[in-house]
Amino acid sequence: MTHLLNIENLHVAIQGEEILKGLNLKIKAGEVHAIMGPNGAGKSTLASTLAGRESFEVLEGTVRYQDEDLLALDAHERAAKGIFLGFQYPTEIPGVSNLNFLRTALNAQRRQRGEAEMDGGTFMKLAREKAQNLGISIEMLKRFVNVGFSGGEKKRNEMMQMAVLNPTLAILDETDSGLDIDALKVVSDGINALRSADKAILLITHYQRLLDYVTPDHVHVLADGKIVRSGGPELAHELEEKGYQAVA
């Protein structure tokens, strides 16, 4: 079976400094992978690079997604092909309501895929349903994107976007950080709801606690720009017990 995502020997620099130094990773549809690692290992660099942020310069290596050269695509094209980045620090956008943002994004993706745009009524129905599952009020959907949201609300809002956009590969960059236990539960439910045979999830996390709620198929340790160890869910526990230093 071919891989949904296949990263080979990826080297990435930001502002001239090499952060990823030959990273390899293969993800099949249906799988949940967790990448763990200490601060500065390159976790967020990997996430941003996969999502297509221009300031991250790929020096070497290949990334194939659905058997296509992912690096040749712009960020919005990647989104339309089903890649979703859950931001570690979701950006505030004053003047744009959540609902307008979501609908514009969804229809921008649909247009790129040659699908008809979703009309207002159908969209509202979808948004309401997803919001309800995540405990997000209509009031919150009418507010400006992430403006004045608490840390937990921002992360929940990322899950809301993920639920509406329904991606094939979700890359969640420390979506669990800064969450209290209730918010963590909501976010985990959102992630678990996306799990299916034709989708994959890449969890990037610093702590093991999210993995108590979302059980990964594979766990990788990222250190100094490379995957230094891979294993099953038990690796996460080992990391928690012994620390990165000992495991990596």
Binding site: H76, T91, I93, A105, A108, Q109, Q112
Partner: peptide, 8 residues
């Protein structure tokens, strides 16, 4: 980037 990562 946030908007482009969502498909715009």
């Amino acid at each position: 980037f946030y908007l482009m990562a969502r498909g715009l």
